[in-house]
Amino acid sequence: MASLTSALLYLDDVQVAFDGFKALRGLSLMLEPGEMRAIIGPNGAGKTTMMDVITGKTRPDTGSVLFDGGRVDLTRHDEAAIAGMGIGRKFQKPTVFDSHSVADNILLALKGPRGPLSAWFGARNRIEPARIDRVLEVVRLSALRDRLAGSLSHGQKQWLEIGMLLAQDPKLLLVDEPVAGMTDAETETTATLLKDINRDHSVIVVEHDMSFVRALECRVTCLHEGAVLAEGRIDTVASNERVIEVYLGR
């Protein structure tokens, strides 16, 4: 089994309460470098809250959240710092910069200095278009390069946001419900895309679509009421009685 020093991400006994309501109650999770993990679980299980904790949006009340073999305590950093350490995030509701072109969305996301002066007259003004094109190719949006992001379809926005994650070149991608609102064909493409990305990035995917989760062919963790209910191969988890009771057999 994984150990703290080898884990890319290590959550232990994380608790988060909102006005007395416990969204996470003793969540523990470990992710190996290079791993892809799917997270499933009923609405309100705490999947998004877990991502909020990892990315610095929400401070846990107790528990440890460690990154990079236990070297970094994520609870001591804010969103921008955590993003800078190499954790990228796609929101549950696709969020792109609507009044910018598709290419500019990628331009802003590309790895590199992020200070105001660099953006005004420094390095970010000298980014080669080829770097943008490469990302757009991966997420299959090359043809829409100059379109305003606001005019994209829901599914295309999801891809653009994944492209923005890729452009950051993070060590770990957190992808919250990437196929919500996608057609079956788009869903399939997205599974392939994420598997490609997983070749050189670690990925955590939250999703309700079980056929999509199956297509990812990775370990699955089922959350329920803020803690892990079951973990393992998809067949093992899907046949777990409690999982069927609280989630799959609704």
């Binding site: 921008a80 993003a83 800078g84 990228g88 995030r89 929101f91 910069f97 802003l108 992020r114 950051q168």
Partner: peptide, 9 residues
């Protein structure tokens, strides 16, 4: 918040 999570201060 999107900007923040992209690593911009």
């Amino acid at each position: 918040s999107r900007t923040r999570f992209l690593g911009y201060r």
